[in-house]
């Protein structure tokens, strides 16, 4: 098995996970556990694919995917922020909605393939110099521009949360909304914007699958990747930079079993498939021992905040 080729495949398999993880981080940083990631990915996937299929324009496809994911997130945001609905149940309902939405619209699209023109828009672009780094260069820096968008988004989000005033305010909302409110931060505004933008990221992650990864439409194309992203968020400790590595790692696990079989090593794919979930559980349990470490979840994660109930 060629390590470079495997790594390149892992980067591609990890890209939808990377986007969905970034979307999930945006939700969780403001204290909302959104189990609708899978649904928002599917909404982005079908709208991105349909627009790409009809217009052959990569920009329109991606903008549509973001809008679709954001729309799903907006439903969630209205219900959980303004209507104080339970986050877990609303997230599950959003996943049901997104699954139905994508199968419904995609019914006439099953088996349709992305046009060559659109494929060319997402073709690998070699980054000079960086791509010459041995082993990892080709895998990381000779990829579709869509993949680079993932790296850039992760870096921007990292800087945003670590160094900007808005990012710090958002984190305060997720850690202690009452204190944030008292400090004059518009808690609900922060929640709305972050959740909706997070949905747009999930939409992009979904759209990567039918536009670049497959590239064609299949029903239920995300195949549970939204749930892996929920796991990945914990694995990387809510750090957007680490999401790049985490995406490659979990993406690699996704394809490892088949690749190993190709190389004559017989390891059961189903056991390999379990690894991300088992690792996430272990991370959570071990994380439980180190209270207050940097990688601990936002303190108000999953708790609703209503000003009137202080």
């Amino acid at each position: 098995m060629n390590i470079g080729l495997f790594l390149a495949a892992a980067v591609i398999a990890g890209t939808p996970l990377l986007f969905a993880t970034l979307g999930g981080i945006l939700n969780e940083k403001v204290g909302h556990l959104n189990l609708g990631v899978e649904g928002m990915m599917l909404m982005g996937a079908i709208i991105g694919f349909m627009l790409g299929f009809k217009t052959d324009n990569a920009f329109i496809a991606l903008a549509g995917a973001m809008a679709a994911g954001a729309l799903g997130a907006l439903i969630y945001a209205v219900l959980t922020i303004s209507f104080h609905a339970n986050q877990v149940v609303t997230g599950l309902a959003l996943t049901i909605f997104g699954t139905g939405f994508s199968s419904f619209l995609g019914q006439s699209m099953v088996g349709q393939i992305v046009s060559n023109k659109l494929k060319a828009s997402f073709a690998p672009v070699r980054v000079p110099l960086l791509a010459d780094i041995p082993v990892i260069g080709e895998a990381v820096f000779n990829q579709s521009s869509f993949v680079y968008l993932g790296y850039v988004s992760a870096i921007i989000l990292f800087i945003y949360f670590a160094y900007t005033q808005w990012g710090l305010n958002a984190r305060m909302v997720g850690e202690n909304p009452a204190a944030a409110d008292a400090a004059g931060i518009a808690v609900n505004l922060y929640k709305y914007t972050h959740i909706v933008i997070g949905g747009a990221f999930c939409g992009l992650g979904g759209a990567f699958l039918p536009l670049v990864y497959v590239p064609a439409w299949q029903d239920g194309i995300t195949a549970g990747r939204g749930w892996i992203a929920v796991a990945l968020i914990i694995f990387i400790g809510w750090n957007p930079m680490k999401a790049i590595l985490g995406g490659v790692l979990f993406g690699g696990l996704d394809i490892l079993g088949l690749r190993l079989q190709g190389a004559g090593v017989h390891i059961n794919q189903y056991f390999v498939d379990m690894v991300p979930y088992i690792v996430t559980i272990l991370v959570l349990v071990i994380g439980g021992f180190h209270k207050g470490s940097k990688a601990s979840p936002p303190k108000a994660l999953g708790n609703a905040y209503f000003r009137e109930e202080r």
């Binding site: 209507f83 609905a85 139905g100 199968s103 419904f104 019914q107």
Partner: peptide, 26 residues
């Protein structure tokens, strides 16, 4: 009507009922 339409209907009912619980508590 595709089966998925039933999922959409189901989700819409859920959204409405989830939203309505607000009016019970507040």
């Amino acid at each position: 009507i595709p089966q998925s339409a039933a999922d959409i209907i189901q989700a819409m009912i859920l959204f409405c009922v989830l939203g309505s619980q607000f009016f019970i508590q507040y």
